[in-house]
């Protein structure tokens, strides 16, 4: 598929590789990010991969836009030549319910399940990290069992503690730092997801796999 390029102001553009949250599309996004970094060009500032698109920040004084577009289209057509590096599987020990998961009972009631059934469903999949965003180190994990998809809070909480495991629509994720948040909190993970003293500063990267372990 020919990527769709959208301009985003005077120093950024978005390369769209699809229009839905899908592992095949996401793999292409990561391959394109990887390919661009392999063949770094002078005006490249940084790339930000998301679920199905890649933002490229560039310096317009050092970048010939038509050449960049051609390069992106050419790379988009031969992404299979850039095999992604091996990604890791990360196990996340998580305490569910009680003070750690104030919304567990709501999620159970909403789906007519017991709390234990919700936990069993949540620990079952091997989740795929589609992207990081929202706050430092926040990983968007897709492939949540449909039976657990739950709408967000109408009014977000002003403070969600670091480590909180939440469900937002059909995605799940872990809050790396204390922040406001509107996802339904079902548990608390005992891992450090973001440490600015480390480089790279996050535990998870796009393409990693995550499994929650009930403790």
């Amino acid at each position: 598929m020919r990527p769709n390029i959208r301009f985003a102001g005077d120093g950024a553009l978005v390369v769209e590789l699809g229009e839905k949250i899908d592992q095949t599309i996401n793999a292409k996004v990561q391959a394109l990010a990887f390919a661009l970094e392999q063949g770094k060009f002078d005006g490249l500032v940084e790339v930000v991969p998301t679920s199905c698109s890649l933002m490229i920040y560039y310096d317009p004084l050092k970048t010939e836009l038509s050449a960049l577009k051609e390069r992106l289209i050419a790379l988009g057509e031969r992404l299979q030549e850039f095999p992604l590096p091996e990604r890791k599987v990360v196990e996340i020990p998580t305490g569910y319910g009680g003070i750690f998961g104030p919304d567990l009972s709501f999620v159970a009631e909403y789906h007519n399940l017991s709390e234990d059934e919700v936990i069993d469903l949540h620990v079952e999949p091997l989740y795929h990290v589609y992207m990081l965003g929202f706050t430092p180190g926040f990983a968007y994990l897709g492939d949540l069992p449909q039976k657990l998809a739950t709408p967000r809070l109408k009014t977000p909480r002003l403070k969600v503690p670091a480590g909180s495991v939440g469900i937002g629509g059909d995605q799940t994720g872990i809050y790396p730092i204390e922040s406001p948040g509107g996802w339904r909190i079902i548990g608390r993970a005992s891992v450090t997801l973001f440490d600015p003293a480390k480089d790279p500063p996050t535990l998870l990267f796009p393409g990693d796999r995550v499994r929650f372990i009930r403790i």
Binding site: A33, V45, E46, V47, V48, P49, Y57, L132, G133, F134, T135, P136, G137, F138, P176, F194, P200, P201, T202, P206
Partner: peptide
């Protein structure tokens, strides 16, 4: 801070 937006860092 450039180069870290991919990690969710503003």
């Amino acid at each position: 801070r450039f180069g870290y937006q991919r990690y969710g860092i503003p």
